[in-house]
Simulated assay, not measured.
Amino acid sequence: MVDLMDTYIEDRNRVQPHHANNLGTAHGGNVLHWMDEVGAMSAMRFAGQSCVTAHIDSVDFQLPLELGDIALIEAYTYNSGRTSVRVRVRAHAEDPMTGDTEVTTESYFVFVAIDEDGHPVEVPELETSTAEGEQLREQALADEAQ
């Protein structure tokens, strides 16, 4: 079994001019790219295998990431099937001076664990051994159901 907290990953990218559109905000495709990468890292940490993106639920862009913001991407595995891994992924705008954050984008990704030949392989069971892990899992399941 793998603990949920072992799959929790954060990554940061500064929104630079080459990430931005003519409005001075990050292109949605760049944000989605960062989310997919961090989500895959979480899935691989859980599965102990390479993982490929199989499905992305609706992506809700709630606020823009402004030029100069830090794009803080967080992901964690909250559920699994036989070969699939469900990962909650959220992007936050982080102020580089204060560290204050605000959620800008969120989605749920499904990854499939694969072997060296690209065939699906079974994944372990997920456990939550901490109150924080259980809270994250319950929150993801509840929010996904909405």
Rank of each mutant, 00 (worst) to 15 (best):
D95K: 04
A54D: 11
F46H: 13
E125I: 00
F111P: 15
P124V: 00
H27G: 03
A43R: 04
I73V: 15
V15K: 13
G28P: 00
R14W: 11
G24V: 00
N30A: 01
Q146M: 14
V59C: 11
T98P: 04
M5A: 08
V123F: 01
M97W: 09
V2Y: 01
H92T: 13
F111Q: 13
R14L: 14
I73R: 08
A75W: 05
H19Y: 11
N22A: 13
T104R: 12
L4C: 04
V59L: 11
E102M: 14
E10G: 08
A142L: 12
E144R: 11
V31W: 01
Y78K: 07
E116Q: 03
V87F: 03
T77H: 02
E125M: 01
A54L: 06
V59Q: 08
Q16D: 12
P17Q: 11
T101E: 15
L4K: 02
F46K: 06
I9R: 06
I56N: 10
A145C: 14
A20S: 14
D6L: 04
P64D: 03
Y76D: 11
L32S: 03
P64R: 05
D143Q: 12
T53H: 10
E74T: 03
M97N: 10
S129W: 07
T7A: 03
W34E: 03
T128Q: 02
A54F: 03
R86P: 13
T25F: 10
L63A: 09
P96E: 12
S80W: 11
Y78H: 11
F111Y: 15
G24N: 02
L65C: 05
E94V: 06
N30F: 01
S84N: 07
D6M: 07
M35C: 04
L23A: 05
N13E: 11
A142M: 12
T77A: 05
H18T: 09
V59Y: 12
L141F: 13
V85Q: 02
I114V: 09
L32F: 02
V52N: 15
A20H: 14
A75R: 02
M44Y: 09
T130V: 11
D143L: 14
E66M: 10
A75V: 02
T98L: 03
L126T: 01
D11E: 14
D57P: 10
T105E: 12
E122C: 03
I9W: 06
L65G: 07
R45H: 08
R12C: 15
A26Q: 01
S84F: 09
A43S: 06
I56F: 06
F46D: 07
P96F: 15
L67I: 04
I114A: 12
M1W: 02
T105R: 10
V31Q: 05
S42W: 08
S84L: 07
M44V: 15
G118A: 00
L23D: 04
R14S: 10
A47P: 12
Y8N: 03
G29T: 07
E37W: 00
V2K: 02
T83M: 00
A40W: 04
T104C: 14
